[in-house]
Structures are given as structure tokens and as C-alpha cells.
Write a protein that binds this DNA or RNA. Structure first.
Lengths: 166, 166
DNA sequence: AAAATATGTCAACATGACTGACATAAATTT
DNA sequence: AAATTTATGTCAGTCATGTTGACATATTTT
């Protein structure tokens, strides 16, 4: 039972529904913290990727988030005004606004990441060794094949050095 | 490397980010289909859970989706008006409106589930055997521990018989 | 008969997406 | 040097989906 031939047989109900419920709870911990700061998920995403990719360009952030600059503009402005993020001129191209977290921004980003890490850690602790790698591979394989390599590169790059492309 | 002790060491950046990217692509296939029908993700969720749990009560649906009845009301009304869902009086309690998909609703629900199943199937095909179970266990473990048993029960129950509680 | 329950509805509001148009400064091309 | 392209920002309006609070109706339970 449980064949995986594409477009045949029964839908993969368990994974479809587990993805829904797991993702909902996964984002709920940060949501609660953000609520007290009058921020939303959109702020979290921006803060997260700026924290992970210091010096990221606005255009690259838009690519990652796949939202419009108007949508980004709103939340980014609030994060700048409230000193969670700063921007500096691009050294080679002075039109660019390179984004960095402030100490305050880093503290929040790390606090939120810690919550999600704790949840993931508890989940992995319940499972055997190799569960981390299995989860990694499953999730990576779910990503659009055209985008997958870029995503993996982004993750690896941010891990290596806190410095973005260009 | 890669310890999982809660609240120590480095955040689990890879899984945090992969969950973001994987979930985004996972919902994107249905999104495209829904767009043509002038429906959104909210409609998808309602249709999905009604399809999976024929005869579900409005109150139970609200519990699953964790939204207000006003939010549900809007999308449910559209699905009823456009004949994707029907409602019948509860046999024992005539205040209840038990929800069912119509053939048209079932066709759409299955079409959307097929898209997500195909994506999952492609992902699992790239991995070894046991990947399905590993993914299942990881995702289930991510769910709030208080809610986990109920979720697993819901999934198993819907698999067994297309008939909801009560 | 009174109270509780299941559901629906009206009105107002917030968030975070969107489109389209336009503005500015800086880099690049001609 | 002038024209064009690029990176970014902003104004204005719209949409989808969530929220709160108040109230209405039918039905069941006490």
C-alpha cells in the first residue's frame, strides 16, 4: 500500500494535511511574540532574511519573498523607523540600499529563530538519528525544481559567511 | 555538528528556511487553479476539509481552521452559492448544518489534492523508501503536542470512512 | 418557561497582498 | 554630454482574508 506513482491512486492525504497543521503551529510561536510588538508575519520574514543575509539588496529580498516592492516597503519602513534594520549605500553602486539588522533587530530575529529551533529540536528528538537529514531532503525535494538549487545555495551561503552575494 | 539540544547552540536555519520555501511552493499549484475560478486559499481549505469529512458540522470546521465564523461564513457562502458544497439538517439536531461536497465540489477538491499529491510523489520518488513515513513523523512531531493526537485522529478517521464524528 | 447551543448576519476594522503610475538618483550606453 | 536603463521609493486605490462586537433565529436542553 501507499504507492507514489504521480497522478494515480489515492491522494497523499496524510502529508497534505500534516503540512497544513505543522506549518500552522510552526509559525504560531513567532506570531505570538510579534503580536506584542505590533508586528506581523511579514515583518518576521523581512527581519529573518536580512539577519541571515547582512548587506542584502532590496531587489534580492524581493526575489526571495516574491512580493511587490510596495508590500515590502511598508513593513521595511516600520523596521527601519523602529531601529530593527539599517541601510547603507552600496559601495560600488550608490543606488543600492544594503540592509543590515541592528543589534536590536538581531536580538529579535534570534529570539524568533530560537522558538522555531526549539520546536524543531523537540520534534527531531522524538525521532531517530538521521531525522534531520531526512526532513531536510524531503522539504528540499518539495521545492520547485527550478528554484531548488538557488534556495539550497542561499541557505548554504548564509551559513558560511554572514554576507550576501554581489 | 548539528546538535538539537533545545535553546542552545545555533538555530536550525536549514529547516526553518526549507519549511518556508517548501510550503510556499506546496500551496502554489492549487493557488493557480483557484485563481482562474476567482477563489482563494481560504476556499481551498474549506473545500478540502468538507471533502475529507463529509457531513462535518460548521463548529467542527471552525475548530479545524481556527478562524471565526464570520470569516468562514464569507467563503462558505460562495461555495454554497456556486454549488461546490451543500448543507443538510443534522438528523438528531436540526440546528446543525452538516456540510457535504457536491460532485462539482468533489471534482475540484480532488483536482487540487492531485496537484499536491503529484508534488509530494515527485519529492518522495527522489528519496529512498521510508521517506514517506519519515516525513509523516517529522511533520506530526512539529504539531503542538496538545493538538497532535486530535490531528492524527482526524486524518485516520477521514481515511477510514468518509464520515465525520458525532 | 428559561437557558443554552448552533448557526447566521451586520458593521467596522486591520493586515498584507495586489496594480498602475510616477519620481529620483545613479549607473550605463550611445 | 545626452539619453537610457536600473534601483529604489512613493502615492493612490483595490482585494482577500483575517479580526471584534453586537444581535437574530431556530432548536435543544434544563
Amino acid at each position: 500500500m501507499a504507492k507514489t506513482a504521480p497522478s494515480e491512486a489515492e491522494p497523499t492525504w496524510d502529508l497534505i494535511e500534516l503540512l497544513f497543521f505543522a506549518y500552522r503551529d510552526f509559525v504560531s510561536d513567532p506570531d505570538h511574540v510579534l503580536e506584542a510588538l505590533e508586528f506581523g508575519r511579514a515583518h518576521h520574514r523581512v527581519l529573518h532574511f536580512v539577519n541571515r543575509n547582512p548587506g542584502i539588496k532590496v531587489a534580492d529580498l524581493l526575489d526571495i519573498l516574491r512580493i511587490t516592492k510596495q508590500s515590502l516597503g511598508r513593513v521595511l519602513k516600520q523596521l527601519l523607523d523602529q531601529d530593527y534594520i539599517t541601510q547603507r549605500e552600496g559601495p560600488r553602486d550608490r543606488r543600492q540600499r544594503l540592509l543590515y539588522v541592528t543589534p536590536k533587530g538581531q536580538a529579535l530575529a534570534m529570539r524568533l529563530a530560537r522558538l522555531q529551533t526549539d520546536r524543531i529540536g523537540r520534534a527531531l528528538a522524538d525521532l531517530g538519528p538521521g531525522a534531520h537529514e531526512a526532513a531536510h531532503r524531503f522539504l528540499a525535494a518539495l521545492i520547485d525544481s527550478e528554484a531548488r538549487q538557488n534556495v539550497l545555495k542561499l541557505i548554504a551561503q548564509a551559513d558560511r559567511a554572514p554576507r550576501v552575494n554581489d
